[in-house]
Write a protein that binds this DNA or RNA. Structure first.
Length: 560
RNA sequence: UGGGGUGUAGCCAAGUGGUAAGGCAGCGGGUUUUGAUCCCGUGAUUCGCAGGUUCGAUCCCUGCCACCCCAGCCA
């Protein structure tokens, strides 16, 4: 059902796992994909999903699908469903391993008490501002809180009272007791717990204090038996804290964190903040707008999951900053779809061509393959009659050098049909070309070459009498600049929005056989690109096609 | 000017004290009823820069440069 899987790459994380397995440091591989349920997944997440789930498939291990839901203020149940749908759609299965950090709140609380008992954590009664004021800066050390040396008993009592709801939000926090002078800011007595008197999407009102990421993550990993905790580079600074916490506590397993660089894709944006801005300011039609780099956007556009996996394989895993060309992703789509999808002829911008020597009222049913290289995909018939639509851009009165299409007096083959010659250009009162009139060579059926002439060009067409009206939506990159905002005042990425990223053609003409196309069906419209019926707006009675990607075009003279 | 990272071809990315994989793009050619696909060929005297060690350095050492991340009771 899917194209041959690309060879798994041997990046540094792969090698680490291989070594750990070989040396016996780990018996199996256990990973996790840990999104916060506060937004939609995008192609950058796909890189992490493919890494975490993929590496485990290779070594026969397990991957947990774990929601990092420690901040009830920002998170919402509705995001969980979309995230699960996206991961599933990408082709991965967490089986029974769907977990939440909130599943461990009770155990986490216990670990926190343990830390207090060891004198490694204390309750701080400073305000958030005061704590910030004492944290120091990148170049100056921080100072100790006046509450840093409270007794273990007092800390324990205070922490228990925090849990009991005796304090207001922000009144107390639990902090790790590490060192305020560390050059690593994450080690300057980081906050472990804060009070939030809000209901949590899963635990309801059971808690009024919630653990922070640094305290939660490593312990959740340990509780799940995660062996390799893979995250992006910005957490590298957190690794000493990750290790510190696990070093203090007795846990069922000892996971290790490894970091890799996040994906950057040219001509789009992948930061949550910017994506939200696009949606909220209605620069796009929503999270699943086909121009969005979100999984839901790509899915709606028509990208197959196999193509996204292929892409993730192709770009590799490393620690170097990267800036990948959209063309790499697009090419993965072409590679995946080319051998799979049936061909069809659709004319986007019609120009009428009347075949003067064609018998009036006659229609011929031409036989054509659904796929040029895969006969097992079957055949189709395409009707041809006296008037056909051809693509406006396939005709030129003043052709540029190398133009291989129709010109006045010139010949071209109608794909799957006959060779035609253009005899006459018909104009309206304002001089616009409204019709072409020409003749066909009856002796050129089934690919037969015309006598003594070379016809290089082949163009697609649709018989006017049986043409099916369809809506076609052409999508292009969302931003004109490779790094949106990079060259704009204040980095305003919206300035680089591509005004032509979406073009709707309410009435294009498709070959008759496309009538009744079900939602979610993909085709290659010959010479134009890959298309899929829009999952939301298309129906068999009124097909709406999204352009997934154009065909490669080695002829420079065309718009894409 | 603290700490943590990264720098190998246009874009990704392996690699090792022994003379620079692979992919994508590009370019040239072939096949072709899609200017598609497919096939063949093609690029680094050089691995951010400068020194040093060595018979030999992209790899080890020293210094420098550039870029990214960190001062949430976000993740």
């Amino acid at each position: 059902m899917s194209s041959p899987a690309p060879a798994p790459s041997t990046h540094f994380i792969h090698n680490i796992i291989l070594d750990d397995l070989k040396s016996g440091r780990a018996e199996t591989v256990v990973t996790r994909f840990p999104p916060e349920p506060n937004g939609y997944l995008h192609i950058g997440h796909a890189k992490s999903i493919c890494l975490n789930f993929g590496i485990v498939q290779e070594f026969g291990g397990k991957c947990f699908m774990r929601f990092d839901d420690t901040n009830p203020l920002k998170e919402d149940e509705e995001y969980e469903q979309s995230i699960l749908e996206d991961v599933r759609w990408l082709g991965f299965d967490w089986e029974e391993r769907l977990t939440h950090a909130s599943d461990y709140f009770e155990q986490l609380y216990g670990y926190a008490e343990e830390l207090i008992q060891q004198g490694k954590a204390y309750v701080d009664s400073l305000s958030a501002e005061e704590i910030r004021g004492q944290r120091g800066t990148l170049t100056e050390p921080g100072e100790d809180s006046p509450y840093r040396d409270r007794s273990m008993e007092e800390n324990l009592t205070l922490f228990q009272r925090m849990r009991a709801g005796e304090f207001a939000e922000g009144e107390q926090v639990l902090r790790a007791k590490i060192e305020m002078v560390s050059p690593n800011l994450n080690l300057r007595d980081p906050v472990l717990y804060r009070i939030r008197k809000v209901s949590h999407q899963r635990t309801g009102t059971a808690w009024c204090l919630y653990p922070l990421y640094d305290f939660t993550h490593g312990l959740s990993d340990a509780l799940e038996g995660v062996t390799h905790s893979l995250c992006t580079l910005e957490f590298e600074d957190h690794r000493p804290l990750y290790n510190w916490i696990l070093d203090q506590l007795e846990t069922p397993a000892r996971p290790r964190q490894y970091e890799f660089s996040r994906l950057n894709l040219q001509h789009t944006v992948l930061s949550k903040r910017k994506l939200i801005q696009l949606v909220e300011e209605k620069r796009v039609a929503g999270w699943d707008d086909p121009r969005m780099p979100t999984i839901s956007g790509l899915r709606r556009r028509g990208y197959p999951p196999e193509a996204i996996r292929r892409f993730c394989e192709r770009i590799g895993i490393s620690k170097a900053a990267n800036n990948i060309d959209m063309g790499v992703l697009e090419n993965c789509v072409r590679e995946d779809l080319d051998p799979k999808v049936p061909r069809a002829m659709v004319v986007l911008r019609p120009l009428k061509l009347t075949i003067t020597n064609w018998p009036e009222g006659h229609t011929e049913e031409l036989d054509a393959p659904r796929h040029p290289k895969r006969p097992e995909l079957g055949r189709r018939t395409v009707p041809l009659s006296k008037t056909v639509y051809i693509e406006q851009e396939d005709f030129s009165e003043e052709p540029p050098q190398g133009f291989q299409r129709l010109v006045p007096g010139g010949e071209v083959r109608l794909r799957n049909a006959y060779v035609v010659r253009c005899d006459e250009v018909v104009r309206d009162g304002s001089g616009n070309i409204v019709e072409l009139r020409g003749t066909y060579d009856p002796d050129t059926a089934k690919g037969k070459k015309p006598e003594g002439r070379k016809v290089k060009g082949i163009i697609h067409w649709v018989s006017a009498s049986r043409a099916l009206p369809v809506e076609v939506r052409l999508y292009d990159r969302l931003f004109t600049a490779p790094n949106p905002g990079a060259d704009q005042p204040e980095g305003n990425f919206l300035q680089d929005l591509n005004p032509d990223s979406r073009e709707v053609l309410p009435q294009a003409w498709a070959e008759a056989g496309l009538a009744g196309t079900e939602s979610g069906t993909r085709f290659q419209f010959e010479r134009l690109g890959y298309f899929m019926t829009d999952p939301v707006d298309s129906c068999p009675e009124h097909p709406v096609f999204n352009r997934i990607v154009t065909l490669r075009d080695s002829w420079g003279g065309k718009n894409r």
